[in-house]
Amino acid sequence: QEPLTASLLAGAPPQEQKQMLGERIYPVIHEMHPTLAGKITGMLLEIDNSELLHMLESPESLHSKVEEAVAVLQAHQAKENAQKSA
């Protein structure tokens, strides 16, 4: 698979750009969190494309962002559960 570059992305419509980024980061996230991969990818796609591209080139920053997203997701779910039981 050829690397995703800024110029490759720039040639696609905005919605398509997120799709392309999602297709690249999803497999990486799936390795780390198979059950949460879809939601984590969805969260990370809210980040700027330039930062997502950087994260693809730097697995370390992608990994730390994924862990950050997992923490946010778990806090969000805990809050929803608390509201449901209230």
Binding site: Q15, I40, G42, M43, L45
Partner: peptide, 26 residues
Amino acid sequence: SNGSNINWPPEFHPGVPWKGLQNIDP
């Protein structure tokens, strides 16, 4: 929307067109 964001975040599925936040709470 009823103000709840219980469906957040939207889920990405490989091969499925990504619609971002439009994926949730139609």
